[in-house]
Design a protein around this nucleic acid. Structure first.
Lengths: 196, 196, 196, 196
DNA sequence: AATGAATGAGACTTCATTCAT
DNA sequence: TATGAATGAAGTCTCATTCAT
């Protein structure tokens, strides 16, 4: 038990990092096990295939993400506060799990993978939280009227993700504190949420 | 000459479509030549390697994109008009070259590819046009003051790309005319450009 | 003791069935333990190796076969009666231990296995009984003169085995009572043993 | 074309010999290509898989066998002559293609292989020729009345094959001329075809 | 007496690339 | 200009075996 959970964790960490960096097809099982410090057969003892490992890993990431979302938005009193918390949660998550985030972005619009369902759930989870907050804000008169919650939600999610990865890849010297206000202003403006 | 350019075009089309769908590493030379209807050796007669083919293809896409941008923004009189034209150009381009766009998005934050330079140029081209329009708009007092043009540009570009691909992949029944106003409103709001 | 012999029996049954069906190399230890309902390590607690398990299993089969032969031929008064009993014994054995019989036939002329000696003994046991009865029958004038007992014995054994497996695999709806007379007539004719 | 047919022939010869000796699962692709003197990838250029190679090889053997049968039985005037020719043809074939024959015998009653259909055809071809000759002989009054042609055919085929392989594996010093009369006498006796 | 997570050599297979035509 | 048979390094996966419990 102890050995097992250790092993799985090491495999997940190694796989996330490498696949986030070089993509699924660009990462070999040899590289994963080398970084995890286990033998090759161990992967196939725990998973049916390389693709199966990635599926499990995506579901694990999903669970972590949901947890982080719940924690950060719990105490919000107004739609603005909730939106602000969401922006922060997404940025913090991408910063913390940068490799995983790259992996998700590069597999997001793929239609031919075994884990398509997993990514679909991941996306639905993300987006529906945003959509809920937006719908609530529109109803409450806090955001601009006439906004389509679904389309806006995926657009805002994408804006934050793109901006965050651009930041981390092309301007890693900047700090979260510098980047967050800029992005928050864009998001609040986009949704007509007033000055951030 | 005629035969050759035919061959190249067929190879490009096949490669763009397949790589857009399955990624670079997930697409084989065999698949490309099968779809293009040419023999395998033909690729290596025209290109030094598979990576070389992709580089050429990216540069071709870049040229097409620049042309489309120039055409669409040429007659703009105000920053708002220019911004509106850019939103339209990006959406139309992604709709027309969906596969190529997926390819770009999934290779965008990769740091280990031979054509990294090409993608970098592509991105710089895209973003700098946006940045220029935004900077001009801020200077002219048309957009919100205090906006960081570089960060905003990449964020806005990402928002449009994400929304567009979500649309094409997950809700392909919608039409450009329905989607464009929603996205335009978000962009204008984000930049404080007044009602779209 | 009780537990152990249970375990061994379960392992034997599982191994015979699977190896009879898919061959030695085509059967994995994982499959054997899964069917036997024991853990993988158990095989290596009881046997030195997979080949060792198969050797033990062959010797077990050999013992069973010898017992069945003894039982069935014990009361024979004439060479004809003995031959008739042998034909029945072989058919009944193959019907009862079909999987084991397939295993024997498919490993019979192999020259590169660890248990070659076991199979050799098995074959020698089988064949020498037949050869003894044939020699006796020739001496007694009951069978055709001038028959080479050794060659005839292996030929007759093979005829019965082939006919039996063809029956069980390709025409399993037939019953032993229908098949036995046909085969017995062929054997008696082959050896000039008069009308069966 | 020239290269290709050479390559395929070399692969076939190597595969037949090795698989006949060590079985399908006991033979590696590495061994096959080493003996054939080609590169590993060549197998997978010509065949989808190792199993596919074996299927092709079995069909090739089938064709050769049918040809040899036709040649040898063509001029027979009586059922006895035809039977005599068949016995000779089978013995000669097994002697010439010993490895292939072992392969067939060890895969004959397997029910889980991709090439099951091919082996089925092979068997049907063999057996139906025997059955035809036997039926004809019974009708003509040349063989014992009341014989079931189908069962007898497979039994006789099996007897010859078993005797032949026993001879080649366990008493290779004997010559075809010594073995053939013994086996022929058994076959003629079995079918009541009079003195061979 | 029995377990099952872990191993690693070696199996099958893929695929970018070469080259004689 | 184009072909396609052939290559071999490198990939994914299998499986008999070990060992701490």
């Amino acid at each position: 038990m102890t050995r097992s959970s250790d092993t799985l964790e090491r495999l997940f960490d190694a796989a996330i990092e490498l696949i986030g960096e070089h993509g699924y097809a660009g990462t070999t099982v040899d590289e994963i096990v080398a970084r995890a410090g286990v033998a090759k057969g161990t992967v196939y003892y725990h998973f049916r295939s390389k693709a199966d490992l990635v599926s499990a890993l995506l579901e694990d990431g999903l669970r972590r993400l949901a947890a982080s979302f719940r924690e950060e938005t719990e105490g919000a009193q107004t739609p603005q506060e909730a939106l602000r918390a969401l922006v922060h949660a997404e940025l913090a998550y991408i910063q913390r799990y940068q490799a995983f985030s790259k992996l998700v972005m590069s597999e997001m619009w793929r239609v031919d993978r075994d884990w398509q369902a997993s990514v679909g759930m991941l996306r639905a989870g993300y987006v529906s939280v945003f959509a809920g907050v937006i719908a609530e804000g529109v109803t409450a008169g806090a955001f601009r009227a006439g906004i389509d919650a679904q389309t806006s939600a995926s657009a805002v999610f994408g804006m934050i993700a793109t901006a965050a990865l651009d930041w981390l890849v092309f301007a890693p010297e900047k700090k979260l504190e510098d980047v967050e206000p800029v992005i928050r202003a864009l998001v609040f403006g986009a949704l007509g949420a007033g000055p951030a």
